[in-house]
Design a protein around this nucleic acid. Structure first.
Lengths: 120, 120
DNA sequence: AGAGCAGTACGATTTTTTTCGAAGCTATCA
DNA sequence: TGATAGCTTCGAAAAAAATCGTACTGCTCT
């Protein structure tokens, strides 16, 4: 049974979506990897922003307005994806991200609420 | 208001307890530090065991039966304490630990439930 | 075709974390 | 008093993570 309280906006997958980049399946998510991915202020910022401000379309990393070299951002987005926190799809030029809300609520109920409540 | 569900055994502080070793105050706990401390299998094992098997007395690190050099254990127990996950007191020769259940439930409700449910 | 854009890949450097041996410290016990 | 127990500190080595410059790729627009 999931933790009752919080519901983040979850949009249905769009039929014409490109396939996700490689990611762990829901049942392969590991708490220690997810915690490690989240144990970084920049990545917490990214995930929190996605949780609180995401709109229907997934977001490319430029959307986040983070002042870091592009290669650093690529790195952090990959860490999040490989831990299973986010999903990334290639839309033409852009690689767009969203949080795997359903998977995470199911496997680690309450964890995303902590991220959403985090204050830098 | 605390998360309803889980209640771990919390024992009252014993009047004659030695003072805790240096640790962050409840209001200074940082999610990113707590997550980093928990993002390690060995430390997850320690915290989970404390949550599930702790008895009235706090436990010295020998109690955990971890097969690692003693200096490694000292390191991991310190990481946990400095992040605010555990409290350590010096009882004569021994440095005994317990999880700061109240503080963590208050600041990061639900997090300890995830640790307790973790499977190595 | 050429320019520009969004972001990736690679690789080097630096920083942080982990690991653990060796030596030290202090209380208790024979 | 010496021996042992239980754990710490120090320090060094190894492993892992973060940072970021440069070069590159693959679309799109003119």
């Amino acid at each position: 049974m999931p933790t009752a309280s919080t519901a983040f906006k979850v949009y249905p997958p769009r039929p014409e979506s490109p396939p996700p980049l490689p990611e762990p399946a829901r049942e392969d998510l590991r708490l220690e990897h997810v915690l490690a991915a989240l144990a970084d202020p920049l990545r917490l910022t990214i995930v929190r922003k996605l949780l609180l401000e995401a709109e229907e379309f997934d977001h490319p990393c430029g959307w986040f307005g983070i002042d870091r070299p592009k290669s650093s951002l690529t790195h952090h987005f990959r860490v999040l994806r490989e831990a299973g926190v986010t999903r990334q799809r290639q839309y033409g030029l852009e690689r767009r991200s969203h949080v795997r809300i359903d998977d995470l609520q199911e496997r680690f109920p309450g964890l995303l609420d902590l991220v959403a409540a985090w204050h830098p």
